[in-house]
Amino acid sequence: MTIGLMHYLVVGAALFSAGLVTVLARRNAVAILIGIELMLNAANLNLVAFDRYGPGGVRGQVFALFVLVIAAAEAAVALAILLNVFDARDRIDVDAMTNLKG
């Protein structure tokens, strides 16, 4: 009845898949960001779990913190872009953003 590395990895996989579903299912760009954050969190969970069950040190946690920084930067820039899109087209439906289709 001990909790091992595999348990955490399975939770991580589930969170990641949930994030993927969010990204695929939603048309609202903010919702897609939500999905991306879920996926990043899943990866972070794996990093911290590996750190805990690995050879020691804080390497995994340090990487998790870097991922956190990236996520923050990404969310800020993405939202700024979305606001611009919203200003221009009055909607943020990704299915309507097809200006670049071939």
Binding site: V23, L24, R27, V94, D95, M97, T98, K101
Partner: peptide
Amino acid sequence: QSGRVRFYLS
């Protein structure tokens, strides 16, 4: 087919 980006991603 309707959802371009999401379709490709799927």
